[in-house]
Design a binder for these strands. Structure first.
Length: 887
RNA sequence: AGGCGGAUAGCUCAGUUGGCAGAGCGCCAGCCUUACAAGCUGGAUGUCGCAGGUUCAAGCCCUGUUCCGCCUACCA
């Protein structure tokens, strides 16, 4: 009776183990531990979010690293939490209110915020629960939220400090305004998308009636706010007109012609209309030339009183009406098709309106300089390396960061204005009397801070900063950050700036930027396309382990991942394979004597020694791959070892001793299976935590291995150097494998079914013979041979036999009565052709004097050996062919 | 416009110091061989995008080029 049933069914054990692990507190990190620290902070998902494939990938990779390091003797902290997602969350709650026929204004600020907290309490935990399904080994006792009291204190501390240092200021500048979210946005929160538009050519007459200037615009409605037309100072066409005035059509306003080097004389007519209130470039130009600003579009996207007869119209309606009027007035010369990039709100896609508005800004240049330096010096390593360039480029071209948002949900700006004297005070604590005049009646700013402002502090605010906590001193700087490259600017760059400024240390030593997930057609997975796979459905169908392993197996650096269901099916088979390997192991361990002493390696079979040697190499490979963040490589090594070495070869080889009647050989095989299975489950655990734990817990444990750890979560990760490697055994088994493959090849090519027993005859040196003699049983079992015989080098070769060459050995399979010899002739010719092709390549190299003279001696020697081997093999096969023909 | 990435088997992709081009899936053939048919065994399949260059030797390094994708950007 087996301990487990025949099919992998993750639904039966995943939840059980997760509960067990959390109850035991394995994920909790102790800041007072003596172990070296390893720490990761989770990229906080939006509190409104639900788990999507990007989260699944991102958090799987973090969990792999966290579990690996935890097993490898580190005090591992994976800090979890969510961010308050100001705009997104407010949108969600406002939608709910709208369903009740209410607006946030109806409730008032305090009541509205109360409602948001209620919402958060009810729904905010969704993504956290989903992360648990994934198996994430976060320290849930430390779960944080950017609006928590502690984190809010950190935000306030940072704001006030930067203000005191003169790095935060308030002022009227042109900013990106979302007319739907009704708030300012930072530059990088605007998504530019190419779209088909038009170029309207307008004719502005000179004031003195002596002519006109043509200008072109993609946004005709802004002409109502024009306060100048600019030309290039060197432009011969317009040189004489500089300083003259034009009459702005429709508005009949007098506007000057100015000269500015910004204008590209080769584009369009070479003259540009200037609308300082509604275009960032024009705003700059306006400053240079002290132009007035006329705001014709308001915060709701409607035309203002300044727009005259168009006041109150939506900006697009106004465009239509105005264009019609311009055409009638003869001002509109022509309309061209024109493609250009239009900026949209990253939250709601509404077209952004550049507006002049009073906002709060961070002067980022000084912070950015430090952030660049840290990467240049290697204090933080970006993986893959090529993202460095993008990072530098962004940091070096950074403009001041608009941090105020005209919403209610978020950290309210701690600035207080005195009604009496007008003084504005910024304060770490709420104040109600003016520090300057002592009057009461202070008004706090209505605006809140950009969510990214608080996320930027995440690596240290989550650890209790500004208190100098044990967590900060143990776990900051964090060891690693894993995130998608799409938030390199939003988040990574800002954490770098804030971390360096406030902790004088980088927030993380390594940053691993993973690829994007795409569907099978290569399109980005997105909610709007509806082409996303749902990780929870996948977990339901395949198990969390299979989903994790699949994602890891495809996570090659710098390459996007195309996902589809069949990909997961492939690794479901792998999980099932592991399951069945375990069944095999358990079946054959039922009578295992846990008290028996360990059989020394030297007394075990070659197969035993071989697989243990391979295990050592696998452990080394997995470690090296993980240390370099080559996740796909790590997964591949485990896959290959478990399936193609342990299952394909060792399990088959172990059947003889297990089913045979030599008790010592059997015990040796049992002990080997346990050693290998135990270590393999340890190696597998970071990738497939549930399956590995389920199987490992059922594995018998011999007394000589000492007490077993309570759980794989806290078990030791295998060290290659502690697993012995026997080179001789590896060589012997490799020889066995070659012989077996050669015989199988004959069988396969000849289409001999396994039911037809055959004999293998090996002709080899005495030395090889003595090595192989002991492995006879293995060879018979694996090659499905009735017997394996040896002949000495000089002895006549068998007649009517298939011939094969493997290493230095010749292998014969007598075919008389089994198969038509012409089949063998065909097979041999094919084989000879293949080898001859190889040989001519090698001889080509050796025939080149340059190669022989200039290549390293060992490379030349290797080629010579290879040529000799090929020659010998060909000769032998030809001889075999002759023997067949001669019959 | 600039920057970055990709192009390798029918498909999806590996390929870390230049030294015999690989895997999975698919395909063909044979197998229910008592862990596993979600399996086993064997087999076929390549102008490594194109053109040059460096080198004894290039998928890998250099130059140019084509196509695809992404990011950044103030061309009205």
């Amino acid at each position: 009776m087996s301990k487990i049933e025949g099919t992998y069914s993750p639904q039966e054990f995943e939840e059980k183990w997760y509960d067990e692990w959390t109850q035991k507190g394995y994920f909790h990190a102790d800041p007072h531990s003596d172990k070296p620290p390893f720490s990761i902070v989770i990229p906080p998902p939006n509190v409104t979010g639900i788990l999507h494939m990007g989260h699944a990938l991102n958090n799987t990779l973090q969990d792999v690293m966290t579990r690996y390091k935890r097993m490898d003797g580190y005090e591992a902290l994976w800090m979890p939490g969510t961010d308050h997602a100001g705009i997104a969350t407010q949108n969600v709650v406002e939608r709910k209110l709208a369903a009740e026929g209410l607006t946030r204004e109806d409730l008032g600020r305090d009541n509205f915020i109360e409602r948001v907290w209620e919402w958060r309490k009810e729904y905010g935990g969704t993504i956290i629960r989903q992360l648990k399904k994934l198996g994430a080994s976060c320290d849930w006792d430390r779960e944080r939220f950017t609006m928590d009291e502690g984190l809010s204190r950190a935000v306030r501390e940072v704001f006030c400090t930067l203000y005191e240092e003169g790095l935060i200021y308030k002022g009227s500048y042109i900013i990106n305004w979302c007319p739907r979210c009704h708030t300012a946005l930072a530059d990088d929160e605007v998504e530019h998308k190419d779209s088909k538009g038009n170029l309207w050519h307008l004719r502005y007459p000179l004031e003195d009636g002596s002519g006109y200037i043509d200008v072109a615009t993609t946004r005709p409605e802004t002409m109502l706010g024009d306060t100048a037309v600019a030309v290039h100072p060197e432009d011969e066409r317009y040189k004489d007109l500089i300083g003259k005035n034009l009459i702005l059509p429709v508005m009949n306003r007098r506007i000057p012609i100015i000269a500015d080097a910004f204008v590209d004389p080769t584009f369009g007519s070479g003259a540009v209309k200037v609308t300082p209130a509604h275009d960032p470039n024009d705003f700059e130009m306006g400053l240079r030339h002290s132009l007035p600003t006329i705001r014709v579009i308001g915060e709701n996207g409607q035309m203002t009183e300044e727009a005259g007869k168009y006041a109150g119209l939506d900006r697009y309606e106004a465009r239509k009406a105005l264009v019609a009027d311009l055409e009638e007035a003869g001002t509109l010369i022509k309309i061209d098709d024109h493609d250009h990039a239009v900026g949209g709100c990253y939250r709601c896609q509404t077209v952004i309106e550049p507006l002049i508005s009073e906002q709060w800004f961070v002067k980022v240049k000084p912070l950015a300089a430090k952030a660049v330096e840290a990467v240049e010096q290697g204090d933080t390593k970006i993986v893959p390396d090529h993202w460095k360039k993008t990072y530098y480029h962004w940091m070096e071209n950074i403009r001041d960061w608009c941090i105020s948002r005209q919403i209610w949900w978020g950290h309210r700006i701690p600035a207080f204005t005195c009604d009496a004297c007008g003084e504005m005070s910024v304060s770490r604590e709420d104040i109600d009397t003016c520090p300057k005049c002592g009057a009461s009646g202070l008004r706090q700013e209505d605006d809140v801070l950009d969510t990214w402002f608080s996320s930027a502090l995440w690596p240290f605010s989550t650890m209790g900063w500004p208190e100098e906590t044990a967590e900060v001193s143990k776990f900051y700087p964090t060891s690693l950050l894993v995130t998608g490259f799409d938030i390199l600017f939003f988040w990574v760059a800002r954490m770098m700036m804030m971390g360096l400024w406030f902790r004088k240390e980088v927030p993380f030593k390594d940053v691993y930027l993973h690829a994007l997930l795409r569907d099978e057609q290569g399109r980005k997975m997105s909610k709007s396309l509806g082409n996303s796979l749902d990780p929870l459905e996948l977990i339901e169908e395949f198990g969390a382990d299979v989903m994790r392993f699949t994602l890891v197996a495809f996570a090659a650096q710098g390459r996007d991942i195309r996902l589809s269901k069949p990909r997961f099916e492939g690794y479901l088979r792998f999980a099932n394979k592991i399951w069945n390997a375990a069944r095999f192991a358990f079946m054959n361990l039922e009578d295992f004597d846990e008290a028996a002493p360990e059989i020394p390696l030297a007394e075990r079979s070659s197969a035993d020694r071989w697989i243990i040697g391979r295990l050592s190499e696998a452990a080394k490979g997995v470690r090296e791959a993980l240390d370099d963040y080559r996740f796909n490589d790590a997964a591949g090594q485990i896959y290959k070892f478990l399936w193609h070495e342990f299952c394909d070869w060792y399990v088959e080889m172990s059947k003889r001793p297990l089913y045979g009647d030599d008790p010592k050989a059997k015990l040796a095989a049992q002990q080997t299976i346990i050693t290998v299975f135990d270590a393999t489950m340890r190696l597998l655990h970071p990738f497939m935590p549930f399956l590995s734990e389920e199987l490992w817990q059922k594995l018998p444990f011999p007394a000589y291995m000492g007490p077993r750890e309570e759980s794989l979560v806290i078990a030791v990760f295998p060290k290659a150097e502690e697993i012995p490697t026997d080179k001789g055994a590896v060589e012997r088994v490799d020889m066995v494998k070659e012989v077996v493959s050669a015989v199988r090849n004959v069988r396969g090519e000849m289409r001999l079914p396994p039911s037809k027993k055959l004999t293998a005859i090996i002709q080899c040196s005495d030395k090889e013979r003595s090595l192989l003699l002991d492995e006879r049983d293995f060879m018979m079992a694996l090659a499905l041979a009735e017997s394996v015989e040896f002949i000495a080098p000089g002895e006549p070769k068998p007649k009517q036999a298939a011939a094969a060459v493997a290493g230095g050995l010749e292998i014969f399979v007598p075919l008389a009565g089994l198969v038509d010899l012409e089949e063998e002739e065909r097979r041999l010719n094919k084989e000879i052709d293949k080898l001859a092709a190889d040989l001519s390549k090698v001889e080509g190299k050796l025939g080149n004097p340059n190669f022989v003279d200039r290549a390293p001696a060992e490379v030349v020697e290797k080629e010579r050996e290879r040529a000799a081997e090929l020659n010998e093999a060909i000769d032998k096969l030809k001889a075999g062919l002759a023997r067949i023909k001669g019959e």
